[in-house]
Simulated scan of single mutants.
Amino acid sequence: MTAALETVLAYYEAWTSQNFDKAMHYIADDIVCQSPAGPIHGAAAFRAFMEPFSQKVTTSTLLSSFGDDTTALLMYDTVTTPVPHAPGAELHTVADGRITHLHLIFDRLPFAKARGEI
């Protein structure tokens, strides 16, 4: 297993098991996250964005993963309390065992429908 993939899989396991304190161990202080809602800068902003979602996850199935020494890509399907299938993909850049950049892709429409916005 490559260094980046090892880090990213440990991060994934932590946030999908609702242990966000452990997940944050793998996040760089100056992380940049490209999300469907726009860019997120810094660990505190990233936590404020991602932790509430992680608390809604009941199960997650890792569909695929691969990586090299500096990048890793995951694709997964989560089951959440508001939405029964919420697939996502994440492209990570890793340096010194921390995720410095995360490009997150997921469909926001099912969540908007669940909140009654559509």
Score class of each variant (00 low, 15 high):
1 M>H: 05
1 M>C: 02
1 M>E: 02
4 A>L: 02
5 L>T: 03
5 L>C: 01
7 T>V: 07
7 T>M: 00
8 V>Y: 02
9 L>N: 13
10 A>W: 01
10 A>E: 08
11 Y>T: 01
11 Y>N: 04
12 Y>A: 00
12 Y>E: 04
13 E>S: 14
14 A>K: 01
14 A>W: 01
15 W>G: 03
17 S>V: 04
19 N>P: 10
19 N>A: 10
20 F>M: 12
20 F>I: 07
20 F>G: 06
21 D>H: 08
21 D>V: 10
22 K>Q: 12
22 K>P: 10
23 A>C: 06
23 A>P: 00
23 A>L: 03
23 A>R: 01
23 A>M: 03
24 M>I: 03
25 H>Q: 11
26 Y>T: 04
26 Y>Q: 04
27 I>R: 01
27 I>N: 01
28 A>D: 13
28 A>F: 08
29 D>P: 11
29 D>L: 07
32 V>K: 05
32 V>M: 11
33 C>F: 03
33 C>W: 02
33 C>H: 00
33 C>P: 02
33 C>R: 02
34 Q>W: 14
34 Q>H: 15
34 Q>M: 15
35 S>V: 06
35 S>Y: 04
36 P>I: 08
36 P>T: 12
37 A>V: 11
37 A>Q: 12
37 A>T: 12
38 G>C: 09
39 P>T: 05
39 P>C: 05
43 A>D: 12
44 A>F: 08
49 F>Y: 15
52 P>K: 06
52 P>D: 11
52 P>N: 06
53 F>M: 14
56 K>W: 03
57 V>W: 10
57 V>P: 00
57 V>R: 06
59 T>I: 06
59 T>S: 13
60 S>N: 11
61 T>Q: 09
61 T>K: 13
61 T>A: 11
62 L>S: 04
62 L>K: 09
62 L>N: 05
63 L>H: 04
65 S>A: 12
65 S>N: 07
67 G>C: 00
68 D>S: 11
68 D>V: 08
69 D>M: 06
69 D>V: 03
69 D>A: 08
70 T>V: 13
70 T>A: 14
73 L>C: 13
73 L>V: 15
74 L>F: 04
75 M>F: 11
75 M>C: 10
76 Y>Q: 11
76 Y>R: 11
77 D>K: 02
77 D>F: 00
78 T>Q: 14
80 T>P: 00
82 P>F: 15
82 P>I: 14
83 V>T: 05
83 V>Y: 06
85 H>W: 12
86 A>G: 09
89 A>I: 04
90 E>T: 12
90 E>L: 14
90 E>P: 05
90 E>D: 12
90 E>G: 11
90 E>A: 13
91 L>F: 10
92 H>D: 05
94 V>M: 03
95 A>C: 08
96 D>L: 12
101 H>L: 15
101 H>Y: 12
101 H>V: 14
101 H>R: 15
102 L>T: 00
104 L>S: 02
104 L>C: 03
104 L>E: 00
105 I>W: 13
106 F>T: 04
106 F>I: 05
106 F>V: 04
107 D>T: 13
108 R>Q: 15
108 R>W: 10
108 R>V: 14
109 L>F: 15
109 L>K: 15
110 P>T: 10
111 F>M: 02
115 R>C: 09
115 R>A: 15
116 G>E: 01
117 E>Y: 07
